[in-house]
Amino acid sequence: MLGAGVFAAFAPAAEAAGSGLLIGLAIAAVVAFCNATSSARLAALYPESGGTYVYARRRLGRFWGFQAGWSFVVGKTASCAAMALTFASYAAPGHTRLVGILAVVAITALNYRGVRKSAVVTRVIVALTLVTLAVVVAASVAGGTASTENLAGVDLGGVLQSAGLLFFAFAGYARIATLGEEVVDPRRTIPRAIPLALGIVLVVYLVVGVSALLAVGPDALAATAAPLRAVVEAGSWAALSPVVQVGAAVASLGALLALVLGVSRTILAMARERELPPSLAAVHPRYGVPYRAELAVAAVVIVLVATLDVRGAIGFSSFGVLTYYALTNASALRLRADEGRPPRWVCVLGLVGCVVLALTLPLPSVLGGLAVALVGAGVWWIRRERGRG
């Protein structure tokens, strides 16, 4: 969650709602809390790798399990494109698409050889991200441009859309649940870790969001694909802009490395269940990685980087991820009280919130997301009929 999202999501959110993005952030946090609660209860009951792909198969049926996995793959593949474009927007503005594609190629080459982001590297990236965000906040407050007048210009009509776009930046807590088999004492650890992580991130995002709005206002945030760099460059601390560029670039590459890794492994699991072409389950004899799945992900991401901008990638990703969490809440509703079911209002609010936020995203994202969901349903039906034959 403390990755590239915070460096990119404020721009489309500001375009949608102006300073009302702060209200959108609060709404996104409430929906994320409901999703996190449902995820935590399900992960404690089913401490298996796969997240909602597993939960929906167990509680809702194979079709909905497939749709959860499909939504995860689609949403996170779009997230990969957003990470690559965010990296390029900060590291090489003016050459965004080329540099973004080169980043995807480089990360895929690392993953192909079995290189993974270790816990130590993760801590370093998070620490660097927090230092970078601290520089942004300090530059916002002390740079000489901060004014409460910049908080004017709330567009209430776009608040829900801003919430859906900002939800993109919260989505990382699913990673805790998908690693259920690798967590010590998952029934105790996961339900505590998810809401704690969510709370910390919400505080960080609120501080950064308020500071950025005070410094430059929503119009300036909406006008760039690198909003936090624009915040620093607007004031007397502009000399520290390279710090933000480096921090955002490292955070984006770290997120991209983890995302390609996670998406390809989900494809591997679905291919092994014959819910995707079995050829995608091939594992490299030397490096031990699902190389065909990784290459397929890279090919799709490169196409998205070449055709979408950061805002389009974020919107498309948000639709897929919100669909995924809608199925998480639906699965949690099927739990019995003795299985640790969350309060029903939490599941219902999370389910309704995900659907509403998904449908209020920019129209191209909604139409594209619905089209891909229908394609997924068609794939599942065709494979089921072939299996019967």
Rank of each mutant, 00 (worst) to 15 (best):
F170V: 03
G262L: 13
Y90C: 12
V141P: 13
G153K: 05
L295H: 10
L166S: 05
V201W: 00
A225Q: 14
L130K: 04
R272H: 03
P342G: 06
L166Q: 08
C347Y: 02
F170T: 01
F167K: 02
L21H: 04
L256G: 08
L335T: 12
R57G: 14
I267N: 01
A215E: 05
T328N: 06
T37C: 02
A4Y: 12
V31Y: 06
A91D: 11
G209W: 08
D185Y: 03
Y287D: 06
T77Q: 07
A171K: 07
I200W: 08
L361K: 09
S241P: 11
T132Q: 02
C347E: 14
T129W: 00
L213G: 06
R192N: 04
Y112N: 02
G94R: 08
M1K: 11
L280H: 04
L2G: 15
A238G: 13
H284P: 07
L151C: 10
A226P: 03
A373M: 15
V30G: 08
A197G: 15
G164K: 05
A16W: 11
G158N: 10
A68Q: 01
T307D: 04
V310W: 10
I107P: 02
V120G: 01
H284G: 03
A28I: 13
W237C: 08
A249T: 10
G5Y: 05
A358L: 14
V159W: 05
V375G: 09
A306E: 13
S38C: 15
A197C: 15
S140N: 12
L42N: 10
Q67G: 01
A43V: 13
Q67F: 00
A306Q: 11
V104N: 00
R187V: 08
V310A: 09
V321T: 14
L21Y: 06
L102S: 01
L166M: 14
W381H: 01
L110V: 14
F72H: 02
A249W: 09
V210R: 05
V246N: 10
G288D: 00
P227R: 08
V115E: 15
V203Q: 05
A330E: 00
V137A: 03
L361S: 08
A169Y: 02
V105K: 00
R341W: 06
A330G: 00
